[in-house]
């Protein structure tokens, strides 16, 4: 049985008549890096806010580290580090004072923790700078350091790479890798920059219009995104009939404009070319595609709403 450190059961959140989350069942496994994928307004931040205790679900249940009662969740959240939307900072406090403030608040008596956090996010040079004077990237890094002060078992990060420059993104990614691999911290992060998530996530959840469309492991996703052949043919109906005799129905898909995609790892282009000529179908265009995470998400959305 999988060990989930975060689980939601039928979580629903409404703002007036607008349903922000609709019966969401989320499962985040221990030690995983869970990428929550969704468009702007899909409900990612709302879901993370509910998990962080900043917002409340109208229906459903939240289970964190096996606890689901409100009072228990409050105490269990001491094991969670969060950065939801922009990091919350006091503009007139220095970076060092801010970390000290949160160390006191989280009951971390060791002064060395401040130094560790500064070094973890490479902000040693900025220790005496006021938070108001930091760049967005530095604020994001300080936000991560704040989240890490209490040595959490779980990190929840909402759009953490927003506003980071390219080298900042690389640094941030390697930092998350280190936290996940060296400290076995479970990371739940949301983003709409899918290429970034693709490089770090071990599990994915696809959220759209408040509904969790699918949860999938990176391994399963790799299999699903394996090579496919895309061809434009003279008679898609005829060719589809021929394919039905050769392949299971779920291994190919007919799109408008006589476009056909054959989803099959290591698909043999020659074999499908021959099949076309045997059935009197002309292939006007043919290429081998690898489905990106973006395409997978778009197709998933399309299939769910069509």
């Amino acid at each position: 049985m999988n060990e989930y450190v975060i689980e939601t059961r039928k979580v629903t959140k409404k703002y007036g008549s607008f349903t922000a989350l609709d019966h969401v069942d989320l499962h985040v496994g221990k030690g995983s890096v869970y990428g929550l994928i969704g468009d702007n307004g899909a409900g990612k931040s709302t879901l993370l806010k509910i998990l962080a205790g900043l917002s409340y679900a109208a229906e459903g249940e939240v289970v964190i580290l096996g606890r689901n009662k409100e009072r228990d969740l409050e105490s269990v959240r001491r094991n969670i580090g969060c950065m939801i939307e922009q990091p919350g900072l006091f503009p007139d406090m220095t970076v060092e004072q801010t970390l000290k403030y949160y160390c006191i608040q989280k009951g971390v008596p060791d002064e060395r923790r401040v130094e560790e956090m500064l070094s973890l996010v490479s902000l040693e040079q900025k220790r005496k700078s006021k938070c108001a004077s930091l760049s967005l990237g530095q604020k994001q890094r300080l936000g991560l350091a704040i989240a890490m002060t209490g040595s959490p078992q779980i990190l929840m990060l909402d759009e953490p790479i927003n506003g980071l420059d390219p080298s900042g993104i690389v640094e941030f990614r390697s930092l998350l890798h280190r936290l996940s691999e060296d400290q076995n911290i479970t990371i739940l992060l949301s983003s709409h920059i899918l290429s970034e998530l693709e490089q770090i996530a071990t599990e994915y959840g696809f959220l759209s219009r408040g509904r969790l469309l699918e949860e999938i492991s990176a391994e399963e996703l790799r299999e699903k995104c394996a090579d496919c052949i895309e061809m434009t043919v003279s008679d898609a109906e005829l060719y589809a009939a021929a394919l039905t005799r050769e392949l299971p129905r779920e291994q190919y898909k007919v799109f408008p404009g006589s476009l056909i995609r054959i989803y099959r790892p290591q698909a043999e282009a020659e074999r499908f070319g021959r099949l076309a000529s045997e059935n009197g179908v002309y292939i006007t265009e043919m290429q081998t595609l690898r489905t990106s995470l973006e395409n997978y998400y778009m197709e998933l959305k399309e299939s769910c709403y069509s």
């Binding site: 962080a52 205790g53 900043l54 001491r78 969060c82 990091p87 919350g88 900072l89 949160y102």
Partner: peptide, 18 residues
Amino acid sequence: EGNRKNGNLKNTISGGIS
């Protein structure tokens, strides 16, 4: 003043303080 705007409470609440 500005506690809500600066988002400081988010860190405190998500850190398990009711």
